[in-house]
Nucleic acid binder design. Sequence first.
DNA 1: TCAAAAGTGTTCAGCGTACACCCATGT
DNA 2: ACATGGGTGTACGCTGAACACTTTTGA
Lengths: 232, 232
Amino acid sequence: MPGRDIYQESEKFNVAVDCIVFGFDDDRLQLLLIKRMFEPCRDCWSLMGGFVGKNENLDNAASRILGRLTGLKDVYLEQLYTYGEPDRDPGGRVISVAYYALIRTDRLDSEAGDRYSARWFPIDNLPKLVFDHPGMVDKAIKRLRRKSLIQPVGFELLPEKFTLTRLQKLYEAIHQRDIDKRNFRKRILSMNVLTRLDEKDRISSRRGAWLYRFDDIKYDRMISGGDHFEIK
Amino acid sequence: MPGRDIYQESEKFNVAVDCIVFGFDDDRLQLLLIKRMFEPCRDCWSLMGGFVGKNENLDNAASRILGRLTGLKDVYLEQLYTYGEPDRDPGGRVISVAYYALIRTDRLDSEAGDRYSARWFPIDNLPKLVFDHPGMVDKAIKRLRRKSLIQPVGFELLPEKFTLTRLQKLYEAIHQRDIDKRNFRKRILSMNVLTRLDEKDRISSRRGAWLYRFDDIKYDRMISGGDHFEIK
DNA sequence: TCAAAAGTGTTCAGCGTACACCCATGT
DNA sequence: ACATGGGTGTACGCTGAACACTTTTGA
């Protein structure tokens, strides 16, 4: 990278962060979208975004912007890709760093969302989105699919306590395919990263289903033992 | 993303591209590094980089900057990650989009490289690098490792014609582990993405080894047949 | 004739996958 | 009693992994 003068001489750009916010509810994978409040494209559906601040790193910017929308802190957030077509935003040249977030729908502060006219949409039935946001969403879904097979990120989308059926439904929603119940349970339990609680969920069935939680300690032990999280 | 006025009011940043340039030679995976010609950190080893131009997208910026260093066009180039710590560059706030490139060492224009005092370093023996470049290199190596197992990117590092032994050595260099010769050949040949030429390489052995080339057409057929490239 | 790299098959174990029935309970 | 979701075991085939010797040829 060139020298001191060149820093000043070089072009400068607005840098934004856009967030692809995933949630899981109603047996479907969903995205949280907002209605743009400003021109250009006022009232179009859009990802939540905002400009990076002067003394802020990118992760913090994403986290701040996501917090504004959801009222949540400490959310799973991962940088996805950076978009820089000169004309991607008709309002001016903006370089956008896309992040995707996994949130627990039950923890959402809906009042925060109301300020942005935010709404959940199932990923297989999204509205038209502004700018290059459709491409961002696409990439995020693919990343989540790949990642969910080899890292325990899915749990970020579930409440702390969940049944195995619910976990399976989540994987089915992410990958949009049916999974064999016996094989799925065998696999997930054999990794020994879940702890079964002394508690049953009686909402979804008469008989009741055992509740589990993801266990970081067991997970860390598995990793340091040289094994890997993997769902097929 | 906010509205018209806010574009002007918001902070603007220098945006740079840094290139992690991989090559393969001498049975080792190598990186092409330059000596910084300007302050800060003049004469330190660094990745090749440069600022994004006013009407240029990110891929084009990376490609232009890489061309300046190597004299090459149409090089394999993939966006890696974007770095934006406020103090990552002591010369000023710069957001850097890192790309990694795979080049065929034999095609390199060394005169172009001379202008930047460029040099190849084996990845397991790199010099101290400026700023956050070590983290970029690390991520690039990991990405290349993962990617080379599931996409035929390795061939970008070999001359058009190569022997199976050379291909195996490349995978060994990328993954830093020995691979069983028979299993490797069985696997790569069974995918049917190589074409054997009527030509032998007699440089590396008395007996001579068949030369192969990667065959895009066969590869496309494999993909549309629902199969996937995969090395284990 | 020897050194140096090229080339080639088989066996075995473990794992992914397919598959169907009984259980517990509230209504 | 019945409907609804919860929970469980086995058999088979495929594939990944380990493993060693013969061939060719130039020096």
